[in-house]
Design a protein around this nucleic acid. Structure first.
Length: 549
DNA sequence: TGAAGTTTAA
């Protein structure tokens, strides 16, 4: 097979020979630690020797836009400049961000160690800098909290309520609940910084960690921090419990609270939605009845939740009759209702009926929005009708609805599913051109495709691209990287991602450990095997301890 | 994310 370079610069061969150095530079300017094999993929015997034959940084010929076979000859060639536009906003600010990132990337044992280390540097602390660093290190609570504490001691600067809320959320996400409560107390001491926004994060993170009782307790204690326990606050609690897999606890809390806090339409709709998502239709209908008794008739929100439940059951007959009922009751379906029904029909393989919903929406005089179009694009992509999907994007633009990150993600995912890597990468570049910030879901299908095609260096290039955009892999992306690299004969890289995953506070599945260890054993890589085995034991012990807490 | 909807790894 003829091959050419992924990043199409005038002299592709030159780029191939310098690719690793260039990519390394991307990392070093923002201060991330690069594994040794990445700095020097061909020269380091200790790592390179572990892997199969080194691939070169190339993709198959179909990816060359200058090629005769190229699908879109009018598009601009992909280039390193397009992929990494330099920011000229504020050089000093960027330099400070890079400096702090570089310091924080060294693995510190505790936030206190970071406070000590940071004191050797002169960085001008501003709210903007704090937010940027906290966002970048949102999956690394030690780094984020160490920096946050240090920044708080800098003269002429005080954390604002939003920065506190961001830090509370990071600690909650990492299950550092004692530290999180400590910070809440500090917010109270500083003076009235705790808001319903703060408590919302607290309740959601507690419930997300299956600490539902603690979430309910947090609600009860809210007024001690100066936050009023009103209907809005109660609705947050109910919604949190419903969304975090405990609609029964939500009902319990509602029954307990409704004597003192008057429920509104949202309170009931939240519960109805909770039951519907849990596929407990009987309870949903009972709550609707109760809602009626309180003088609230079902709204389009209530009906839409119910419709979604019937969609999940694939009971489209009931779905159609409910849509009729909505019209008759002068509570007509809106764009959200139509999105749900169309999406469910499309997913069930009933593409024709799904597309009919687009006509129904138009007949009703309902204006489609970005989410509706995105869903339509998804259905067309799934049905292999990519050209039609691109036409929908054009229609969106004509209607004045700009594509958003989900539009791009859906298109990229569809292109990857149909092995159209060139189009997928072009879409990534187009996102940058349109200042549409990618997220983790942008990269996942691309990474998956790279793994499938064994384009390991392209994959690492994309990982680098992600870091520059402040997008760090989540649990599932790490799992994907570790297992795919391992299966594709890149066991050394796989181990490095596994270690990094653990250092970021993620707990890999035991199957992930076993997969890596099996490969290491097969290759007789004893030192690395022992290291991973130790990590596995450590994780198993931690799980054991936690299960008794 | 957060009273209802859109992308996603086996």
């Amino acid at each position: 097979m003829r091959r050419c370079c992924l990043i199409l610069v005038p002299s592709s061969k030159k780029f191939v020979s310098h690719s690793s150095r260039r990519t390394t530079a991307c990392f070093s300017t923002i201060g991330f630690d690069l594994p040794d094999w990445f700095r020097n993929p061909d020269g380091d015997a200790s790592c390179a020797g572990l892997d199969d034959q080194e691939d070169i940084f190339v993709l198959p010929t179909e990816l060359n836009p200058s090629d005769e076979q190229s699908q879109n000859r009018n598009s601009r060639p992909l280039s390193i400049r397009n992929a990494f536009p330099a920011s000229h906003e504020d050089a000093e600010f960027e330099a400070d961000v890079d400096e702090v990132s570089r310091i924080l990337s060294a693995r510190f044992a505790s936030p206190e160690a970071i406070v000590i280390a940071m004191d050797c540097y002169s960085v001008r602390v501003t709210g903007h800098l704090v937010d940027k660093i906290l966002t970048r290190f949102s999956n690394d609570w030690v780094a984020a909290f160490g920096f946050f504490m240090w920044a708080g001691t800098q003269g002429g600067y005080c954390h604002c309520a939003d920065s506190y809320d961001l830090m509370v959320d990071i600690l909650g996400k990492s299950k550092q609940f004692d530290l999180m409560w400590g910070l809440i107390n500090q917010m109270v001491e500083v003076g009235g910084l705790v808001s319903l926004m703060t408590m919302t994060k607290v309740m959601r993170r507690l419930a997300g960690a299956s600490r539902w009782t603690d979430a309910i307790d947090a609600f009860h204690r809210m007024d001690r921090f100066g936050v009023v326990k009103d209907t809005k606050a109660m609705n947050v609690l109910l919604d949190t419990l419903c969304k975090e897999r405990s609609v029964k606890r939500a009902r319990g809390a509602f029954q307990e609270l409704r004597g003192t806090i008057p429920p509104d339409e949202s309170s009931f709709n939240t519960l109805v939605h909770g039951w519907c998502k849990a596929r407990m239709l009987k309870e949903a209908l009972e709550t609707m009845e109760e809602m009626n008794q309180h003088g609230f008739s079902p709204s389009v929100v209530t009906y839409t939740s119910l419709l979604e439940a019937y969609c999940m059951e694939k009971d489209f007959q009931t779905v159609y009759s409910l849509l009729d009922e909505m019209h008759k009751r002068r509570c007509p379906p809106n764009v959200i209702t139509y999105t749900i029904v169309m999406h469910a029909l499309g997913k069930a393989g009933r593409t024709r009926e799904a597309l009919d919903m687009f006509d129904k929406l138009k007949e009703d005089g309902v204006a489609p929005d970005a989410s509706f179009y995105n869903s339509l694009i998804y259905i067309l992509g799934r049905a292999g009708r990519l050209e039609d999907a691109y036409s929908v994007v054009e229609e969106m633009h004509k209607t004045g609805i700009p594509s958003n990150v989900t539009t791009f993600n859906t298109l990229i995912s569809a292109a990857c599913d149909h092995s159209q890597a060139e189009n997928a990468l072009k879409l990534l570049v187009k996102m940058e051109e349109q200042s549409c910030k990618p997220d983790i879901k942008t990269y996942t299908p691309l990474l998956k495709l790279c793994c499938k095609k064994q384009w390991v260096k392209t994959l690492l290039f994309l990982v680098c691209h992600m870091f520059r955009k402040d997008i760090s892999p989540d649990f599932s992306t790490y799992t994907l990287l570790v297992s795919w690299l391992c299966r594709n004969g890149k066991v050394a890289q796989s181990c490095l991602f596994l270690e990094e995953m653990i250092s970021k506070g993620f707990t890999p599945k035991l199957e992930t450990f076993d997969l890596v260890m099996k490969k290491l054993e097969k290759r007789n890589l004893q030192i690395m095997y022992k290291k991973i085995h130790m990590l596995r034991t450590h994780i198993t012990n931690l799980r054991h301890t936690n299960s008794f807490q």
